[in-house]
Design a protein around this nucleic acid. Sequence first.
RNA 1: GCGGGCGUGGCGGAAUCGGUAGACGCGCCGGACUCAAAAUCCGGUUCUGGCGACAGAGUGUCGGUUCGACUCCGACCGCCCGCACCA
Length: 876
Amino acid sequence: MRPERYNAKEAEPKWRETWADQAVFQTRNDDPRPKYYVLEMFPYPSGRIHMGHVRNYAMGDVVARYKRARGFNVLHPMGWDAFGLPAERAAIDRGIHPKAWTYENIATMRSQLQSMGLSLDWSRELATCDPSYYKHQQRLFLDFLKAGLVDRKTAKVNWDPVDQTVLANEQVIDGRGWRSGALVESRELTQWFFKITDYAQDLTDALDTLERWPEKVRVMQRNWIGRSEGLKIRFALDSETLPPDGPGPELEIYTTRPDTLFGAKFMAVAPDHPLAKAAAARDPKLAAFIEECRRTGTAAEAIETAEKQGYDTGIRAIHPFDSSWQLPVYVANFILMEYGAGAIFGCPAHDQRDLDFVNKYGLGNLPVVCPPDQDPATFVVTDVAYDGDGRMINSRFLDGLTIDEAKEEVARRLTAETRDGSPVAERKVNFRLRDWGISRQRYWGCPIPVIHCEACGTVPVPADQLPVTLPEDVSFERPGNPLDHHPTWKHVPCPSCGAPARRETDTMDTFVDSSWYFARFTDPQLADAPVNRAEVDHWLAVDQYIGGIEHAILHLLYSRFFTRAMRACGYAGLDEPFAGLFTQGMVVHETYRAADGSWLQPSEIRIESEGGQRRAMHLGTGATVEIGSIEKMSKSKRNVVDPDDIITSYGADTARWFMLSDSPPERDVIWTEEGVQGASRFVQRAWRLVGEIADLSGSSANGTGRSVEATAVLKAAHRALAGLEEDVERLRFNRCVAHIYELANALQAQLAAARGNGSLEALGPAFREAGRIFVQVLAPMMPHLAEECWQALGHDGLVAQAPWPALDRSLLVEEAIVLPVQVNGKKRADVSVARDADAAAVEAAVLADEAVRRALDGRAPKKIIVVPQRIVNVVV
RNA sequence: GCGGGCGUGGCGGAAUCGGUAGACGCGCCGGACUCAAAAUCCGGUUCUGGCGACAGAGUGUCGGUUCGACUCCGACCGCCCGCACCA
């Protein structure tokens, strides 16, 4: 006996068990069907899943289930990005070991994810904190080291004083640590780096090939890599003015505007440039100035507001085209040692920073590019530098050239000229991208597998000694790196000479862990190698990757580098790990604030609406609560809805359905109680609809022809099917939802009509066919309900394994069509014509129409435009 | 400052190879069923005028192209996101 109401609480666990028992979602590597790899960014095991996870994984699951039904061998795995600082913080705050904390969280979150009914292959589950995973990561590190892709060097790095660790450039947002939010400091440390800059050119070029990536992400990566073309020029220095013990009688600069060389007014070097240091040795005031720069230079906020400041070193540079032309060399606070040559020539008329600088120090400016609409004789620059197009002026042999021609001419002359046997200038492509610093002074991460020996230097841990495992008996009582404080762990013999040596105590940035997990999923049980090359080449690239925009640069850039590095070491045969990328929007919610200013959870209040006015009341006190702005769900604003609560009270299908409806997936979705209830209503409506269809006496189709009514029923189903196919492929889930609603509406109306005119019996087969399609298009989004419906309709097996229904395109065309008719571009009537009616027939029908005649009001049409099967416009 | 995106009913949003603006959902209004409530079902819902058929206006603003513009072009206004002393 079929219950009247669908009971998600009973049905959902039952179907999940069935899927698990039959291993429906386990993927076999030897399956001959075409592959499809769909992956959502794996979660950090923070404790509980949140609505953002629900949205992310619901989207991925729709794609996975749809592609599976379409006959693909789908790989849809899940794992845990399990190393990271929060585990250490839990250890410090609550005395629980990071490992225990992490695995407890994984257990909780795994069961939460499982309650969503995701079609995941759990047999491939992995956790990056497991030695069976990080062992291979250490192996990759050693291979990269051997291949020259790893560097250990002293560099100025970002130090997070709260998390007590170094951060990569990508992990500093607005001058603050991406996790801690603390202002980062600049420190000079010896660190391990991955040489991502070796691939800078390729990483920027290949962005053009990533057609199925959001334009926004590609632009962000391109800007981050920051490729520029310019000229490296060696300026000679006047030996009279040189400091003793300086770096030599010349200064190398980098410029992208060699065309403006005749507008030069000064030279400037970074405060930590060798020439600045040498000059400071003879000038205490300069030394003080450099010290001042260093102090303000660390905080990014200070940089933004800092005034341009400089100090004249007394050194004079000689213009490369005029040996009698001397330029003062300044140390300036706005020059970065890390970029280009750490030195520039300043052309104030055409660079705002340089202009601000000369206006402060009274050095003047000379325009050398004249805008097209200006007279070269009168064009002057005062406060606003001109960086637009134009022709060269005041520039001797460059006069009259365009900017590009002038750049080329300067490059041609200076690269041909030599001093001391070397060219004075060199064409140079420069990048903003820096090498990826991966050393972290933390415990809960993948140990860097090297040993420091006094005699042998830095010695890699031999491959047969991997993994270098983390010690479990660590203390978090002292600040700093627990591995460094461990009494015995770091003391090991040198693998090379056997003398007492010291293990590297830094661990790897957790972004290393997530840079190759997608490759490991292709064969996660593999014990003796990071990956199986054949499987990697078969499964990668990931066909559809889905995750948050916050990884636009970080994870997505690192993974692109890592795949290239793996290729260089023979682990992969391709460069780009993610062929299709989709970045989903956030889940946002209203905020609620009590009279005392404290934030209230949605579960603590009740919304009442009267005449369109919504009012919030506190459940306990009944006090009025202020309804605040809609914001990202966050603990601080307490506007969080726990997925567990929704799944418990409404079921997973309702939660999934609501997540996919309404908002386009790339935009933020507003979580509302009304919306969830609407979704829940539809679950019951779909169940009733299928029930009614199941109850139709299933007499097989009698006769051969289909009645007009039967065709109408099937047309509705196939229209929804066609729409769904198109929109799932384009990840437009909100439209998929709309197609399903339309089909439900149509079937309901047609059932009522058939009941009214007694044709229900005859239409049984058509309704059953349409009902089957309805259940199948529903299945990717509401898989549990769909199974229950599938069974109710009497179908064998699981809808999760049923092949996708074949679309009958002949049902998509209409025989008689209703054409809108415009008169002078305004819609005045509808006329019904045969599908294949020719223009003359359409015109005749239009002119015969009463409403058209009224609109024409006796005027003769000048022209009639007939767009076949679309519209008619009568022009008078 | 540079780069990217977006402006459509009370709300989320459809419609972009130029061809019926407002699909679908939420909310709201009215009705049916019920002792009542819930649930469900039916109808309405861009604005203005009209009982109505209907008429006029309407996709941030102004202008242009076109038989026809949410869609294309130009100028502007507003919002969101990213980057930012990168030479």
